[in-house]
Design a protein around this nucleic acid. Sequence first.
DNA 1: CAGCATCCTGTTTGATACTG
DNA 2: CAGTATCAAACAGGATGCTG
Lengths: 118, 118
Amino acid sequence: MQNQQAPEMSCPVAPVVDLVFSRWTTPILWTLNFDGRQRFSELERRIETITPKVLTERLRQLERDGLVSRTYHREIPPRVEYQITELGSSLAPLFAQLAHWGTAHLPDVEQARLSYDA
Amino acid sequence: MQNQQAPEMSCPVAPVVDLVFSRWTTPILWTLNFDGRQRFSELERRIETITPKVLTERLRQLERDGLVSRTYHREIPPRVEYQITELGSSLAPLFAQLAHWGTAHLPDVEQARLSYDA
DNA sequence: CAGCATCCTGTTTGATACTG
DNA sequence: CAGTATCAAACAGGATGCTG
């Protein structure tokens, strides 16, 4: 978490960033939104390089913030499913816009970097 | 910087997040966008808790990425002005949407946290 | 299976002092 | 004024081993 509490006074975007755009949260929300409800190990496989510890931490945080819900099935072996909430999916248009900006402007950024480094 | 290179494979939003939403960048871009061109010390005062070292680092990064431009005026005392670029201001609608989502849903998040902690 | 506990590490951030 | 240099602190992240 980044704790942008001070800057948020001058920037209304900061608290949202803190909430949604800390490390690993976007891939988690993205896959839960597009690939639907998933088990812990499915998430682990989809996000590839994440470790179980960190995945757990992020899921707990997202659950606490109401963006993701967790369902524990008392079976043997145990089964846990994660699902995006309504609040979480209200971010979808935002994500779409962000992805769109990326495809439109990331090449410009790359170009700027090349110029700067030269 | 967060380096979300791996996750970006499964999440097109991640690279944009890396670029725009690392710590301190949103307040900087926000004020440059809304309050216009500013000198180093003006930014320092507006963002309050930021240190000159970190402000410099972030401005350099934003400059390299083409989101901000820097103009050095060779005077005594020296004067430097920072300004958002066209590329940078193309983020404005995104920021507006983010701020809008915040006012609409941040209370829900707060509520979710209260429930969770209980 | 889905985690938690513990330890450990590198990076990021900040405090402080100084300069062209 | 607009930074830079140096040092110290904080924290996120990873490795490993264990369990209901």
